[in-house]
Nucleic acid binder design. Structure first.
Length: 640
RNA sequence: GCCAGCGUAGCUCAGCCGGUAGAGCAGCUGAUUUGUAAUCAGCGGGUCGGGGGUUCGAAUCCCUUCGCUGGCUCCA
């Protein structure tokens, strides 16, 4: 007596024999296109998935965003199949779908060359065109181990032994077989639009001491257009690369002579930083912050007391002189704490909001350094808030508001917000954690920001809020972090005198809004693609005289603009006007003032706006008042 | 730190299988005095990342070291 399984799909009811492939229902459905997967609740299942229990199914077709992950996962199997065919003896590791594509890890004596990638991709296309069925197999653990042992796939054997239950699922296409949960596409023929992108090293199971594998990255899409769009996106990202623009626009310098991870801000970068810092300071004053300056080194003992020597591994080695050891600072907090402790504090003076653009030094391993985004010496836009428990929520609200106000001014309107809560290993009192987590969440709620909770992802000394910003081409960058700290107030025995004369422990909030000046500058360069808005542009106006006889007038204009504190350059080279325009455009100067006979005669200038072309003649004084308004408003667009 | 790739003039790059360096742009000089994205000509500029080796001879081959790039790991 065979058991029948009830399957509901598209308003029809089918009864399948237990274990029969679900795809049997398809013959009974009036559909023109065949699906690639079933959806059961939120689970995706292979078409060949066996009828195991009563289910309500819906159909997933090629192109469904939900199925993209499956497509990429199958693409990674296709990659692995091609590699094992082309390079006998290679062991396969793992090959998941990732955010923008997929990868597969291989263990092989020789690394893959770029030529190998081309050959592998070619082989992948051949296999795809053969439209080989991808079959789901359920094997006993012993059977699976035997199969992979036979094939010399020791890494897979290791995985099965670790992860597999008594039965394991595998997927087979042609001769290639992989230990994998699935689901997968019905056959390789669905893989049409994919591309291998790069090869790199990766550790087996992410363990630095484990074997080093070769990881091949690729991406795959359902349509040619999506693939092209993604490849264009990668090109666009390259054009925005702050390292390239930093050099082309003469913004900053790195050099072997300096050392890795150290940055010099050239004049054109330095003026931008100056403007950002001024703006930052003004906004902090508006929000009741005070400023602090602290030195770059302090006695090692301070860092012992703070716990940094014990818990923080990014410190440079200490310096020693006059019998004491000194430490280059990786953080600003201990200094602010010393200032707090410099005298007794009353509940009446809390909250104290102390801000500092504090330059810190961290020993980042050489392999992780990256342009301005990951450096060894950088300036945090730091602040520490000392407050009473009942002030916590309002303080955090204030910080969130200030952060979004600053970020919006630079054109960052979209955020991803995370609240990270108490991890397993933590310091401080449980009730303080609860109080703080509640305050953080309440503050988030009232901010109107959507956020997600990272359960247990807080640092050991307190819960935190992280804000990632979305740039002009949709990439996310971590900037703002707001962290509670139950550790340092305890270690340094911070107190204030309460209303009834007892000593109380203040709450301490660390926060950086832009993150660091270096990193934020790098993000800004990429966000703006080097086209800084007028208020930040290193050169706001380029004056281009047409011939030598117009230079005197050009200088007059230059002085007039300078008197208004406008940043202006004058091109007095013996080049033709076309060349001068090209130069100014390539330097991304927002406003180009061309002056010749006509402009001299009627005391005007011909305006060209970067990226917008010729605007015709404008009168000087109204030009000045217009651009001053744009600057004043920190307008993100230069529109006349 | 690990794996791989790369390192030639200020910048971008060429230089095959070893015969002792080349282009474009930039710079300098001169001519041109020009109306909305490159005027022309001339000149200067490199111990080919550093060190060692093989060789009659190395930018080219080998070893080593430093740096950069892509990832990995790391980022309490």
């Amino acid at each position: 007596m065979e058991e029948l399984i009830r399957i509901k799909i598209e308003e029809s009811i089918f009864f399948l024999k237990k274990g029969a492939p679900l795809s049997e229902v398809l013959t009974g459905l009036p559909i023109s296109e065949s699906p690639i997967l079933f959806r059961s609740d939120h689970l995706l299942l292979d078409l060949s998935y066996p009828a195991d229990k009563e289910r309500e199914l819906s159909l997933v077709f090629a192109g469904d965003p939900e199925a993209l992950e499956t497509l990429r996962h199958s693409a990674s199997h296709l990659l692995a199949q091609a590699v094992t065919e082309l390079f006998p003896g290679v062991q396969v590791g793992i090959g998941p779908a990732i955010e923008n594509g997929f990868y597969y890890d291989f263990l092989r004596d020789n690394p893959f060359t770029p030529e190998d990638l081309i050959a592998i991709e070619k082989r992948m296309r051949e296999i795809a065109e053969q439209d080989i069925p991808i079959q789901r197999l359920v094997l006993s653990k012993e059977e699976a181990i035997r199969i992979f042992k036979e094939r010399g796939q020791e890494l897979k054997v290791e995985l099965i032994q670790e992860k597999g239950g008594s039965e394991v699922t595998c997927y087979q296409q042609g001769d290639f077989i992989d230990f994998c949960l699935g689901p997968h596409l019905p056959s390789t023929g669905y893989l049409k639009f994919f591309k291998l992108l790069s090869v790199s090293g990766a550790y087996w199971k992410g363990d630095e001491k484990g074997p080093q594998l070769q990881r091949i990255y690729g991406t795959a899409f359902f349509t040619e257009k999506e693939l092209e769009d993604y490849l264009n996106f990668l090109e666009e990202a390259k054009k925005r690369d702050h390292r390239r623009l930093g050099q082309e626009l003469d913004l900053y310098t790195t050099s072997d002579d300096l050392g890795g991870g150290l940055v010099i801000w050239n004049p054109k970068g330095a003026i931008i930083r100056h403007l950002i810092e001024n703006f930052w300071k003004e906004e902090h004053l508006k929000d009741g912050y005070d400023f602090i300056y602290s030195p770059h080194i302090a006695k090692l003992d301070l860092w012992k007391r703070s716990g940094h020597t014990e818990f923080y591994d990014a410190m440079f080695p200490p310096l020693e002189f006059e019998g004491f050891k000194y430490q280059l600072k990786p953080m600003n907090c201990p200094f602010h704490i010393i200032a707090y402790k410099s005298r007794q504090r009353s509940y009446r003076e809390l909250p104290l909001r102390w801000a500092e653009l504090g330059t810190v030094y961290r020993y980042e391993r050489s392999g992780v350094l990256h342009g301005l985004l990951r450096v060894r010496g950088f300036t945090q836009d730091d602040a520490h808030i000392f407050c009473r428990g009942e002030q916590l929520e309002d303080e955090i609200k204030g910080v969130i508001q200030l952060a979004t106000r600053l970020l919006k001014a630079f054109g960052f309107e979209k955020y991803q917000v995370y609240l990270a809560t108490r991890p397993d290993k933590y310091v401080g009192k449980l009730e303080d954690w609860d109080k703080a987590e509640k305050a953080l969440e309440e503050a988030l709620k009232s901010s109107g920001l959507t956020y997600q909770i990272d359960e247990g992802e807080g640092v050991f000394y307190g819960p935190k809020i992280d804000i990632k910003i979305k740039d002009a081409i949709g990439r996310l960058w971590q900037c703002t972090t707001i962290q509670l700290d139950f550790n340092l107030p305890e270690r340094f025995d911070l107190t204030y005198v309460s209303q009834d004369g007892t000593f109380e422990r203040p709450f301490m909030i660390h926060r950086a809004l832009l993150g660091s000046m270096e990193r934020f500058f790098g993000v800004l360069i990429e966000h703006y693609k080097g086209n800084f808005p007028l208020w930040l542009a290193p050169v706001q106006i380029a004056i281009l005289p047409i011939a030598e006889r117009h230079e005197a007038y050009a200088r007059e204009l230059q002085s007039r603009f300078r008197a208004e504190a406008l940043r202006v350059s004058l091109d007095d080279s013996r080049e033709k006007i076309n060349k001068k325009i090209r130069e100014a455009e390539m330097q991304k100067v927002p406003l180009i003032a061309i002056v010749g006979d006509k402009e001299m005669s009627n005391q005007s200038l011909s305006l060209r706006i970067h990226g917008q072309g010729d605007q015709g003649q404008v009168e000087i004084e109204s030009f000045i008042s217009k651009i001053k308004k744009l600057i004043e408003d920190k307008s993100l667009e230069t529109k006349f």
